[in-house]
Nucleic acid binder design. Sequence first.
DNA 1: CAGTGGTCTAGACCACCGC
DNA 2: CGGTGGTCTAGACCACTGG
Lengths: 246, 246
Amino acid sequence: MTFALTSSPPLGQSLYGTLADALRQRILDGEWQPGQMIPSEASLAQRYGVALGTLRQALSLLVQDGVLRRQHGKGTFVSRGLDYASMMRFFRFQSQGGLPVTPESRILQRRLRHPSAQEAKAFQIDLDGQLLQLERLRSIEGQPCLLETIALPLPLFGALADSNTEDWDDLLYPMYQRRCGILVHHARDELKFSQLNAKQASRLQLQTGHPCVLVEREAFDVAGRCVERRTTRGDAFSFTYTAHIK
Amino acid sequence: MTFALTSSPPLGQSLYGTLADALRQRILDGEWQPGQMIPSEASLAQRYGVALGTLRQALSLLVQDGVLRRQHGKGTFVSRGLDYASMMRFFRFQSQGGLPVTPESRILQRRLRHPSAQEAKAFQIDLDGQLLQLERLRSIEGQPCLLETIALPLPLFGALADSNTEDWDDLLYPMYQRRCGILVHHARDELKFSQLNAKQASRLQLQTGHPCVLVEREAFDVAGRCVERRTTRGDAFSFTYTAHIK
DNA sequence: CAGTGGTCTAGACCACCGC
DNA sequence: CGGTGGTCTAGACCACTGG
């Protein structure tokens, strides 16, 4: 059986571009799950009736996109999404010993509310729809370091609305995938400097007005839908960031 | 005439990788100047005695590297190096009208000194060698916004040691290329949060202790040599940065 | 060893640019 | 129109992985 591409004339799009879209759709549809191996290049080329080189060009697009990973001799795999390192690159926290660690996580508050106009637009939900708002404190060896406010659209994250927050993982993104089937594929972070208000300062055990870094993040799934909005505050003096410019 | 690759067995390196290195060397040697068009793919493939596809793979490496730019229907060109936008991405300055502008530049000080141990290592010069140190203030519509300390190794930048700083351009990197033949190809920026000391504050017309962003940059040429070290300070509250995470 | 992705070839044709 | 890079083909062989 062959999967002839329905749009025979690539309409301003190259064949390998069209092919890449078709393959991306099969991942979006859940036909190939994160971490799973997709069929071999040779078999896909045959099924789609294209040359091997053309199929490889299509795969290369998806690899560059971060949707697929190639492993020489093993196969081509669907990406598992953002990892911890790429999520936490703005703050340099380490234990007493000097090794980088994953901060522990405690949910301070969970409530339902209606979205703001901006949130409704980002999440593509109605103004009278609902979202889940979390306040979360991250600590290292008992020392608070990051304060987060997280907004998640309902009903997408309904599975998190009832479960006991005590049982939640320290890392949310893997949990989103396990409990809600949502894979965070990419994100956009915007950084600014600010100062802590009284409430924020007390939670971070710092002085009111203490300089802080403010990271505003929008996280997206493979289809490009915004699935999370998050504001993170942390001590400005423990902030560091390295950028490579080309 | 053909340019047979001297190292016939690619020794753990693919043919197109070896080819890319050979082509990169011809650019490093100045055989092809920044902005200039290199020979066509077909002619290069013939000269090196490889298939067109293989040569294209080599060029793709250099394009990804930022050394070459392809232009469909026109040719393949040697890159002109970093542009203004990529150099100034951390601060969002705009004129009263709201349009982004290039800050004016004024050299406050220029002097010769010996390098620190760190500088000597970065620039690969001796501890009793010399470097040029600049202090530079950048302003928008007369309002100071960035204070920079710049270190340049001698004798590489000898042409700048004597010339009148009044005649210098607002953008240094194009000037490095024109006056010293040095092309800034990539850079690494490290950001931290800090506070202004008295001298810095007075130059930026802010209060002593005012929060500032500190950007420490090392800039490199195509060969990977460090050619500039620069420290930039600016008002933390006019700082903003957007990062895309994948 | 069989199966996977990676490299390389030789050649045809298309799409864009500028004269 | 001629010259450039971009796409696509069909097939051979190499290099890595794991049983």
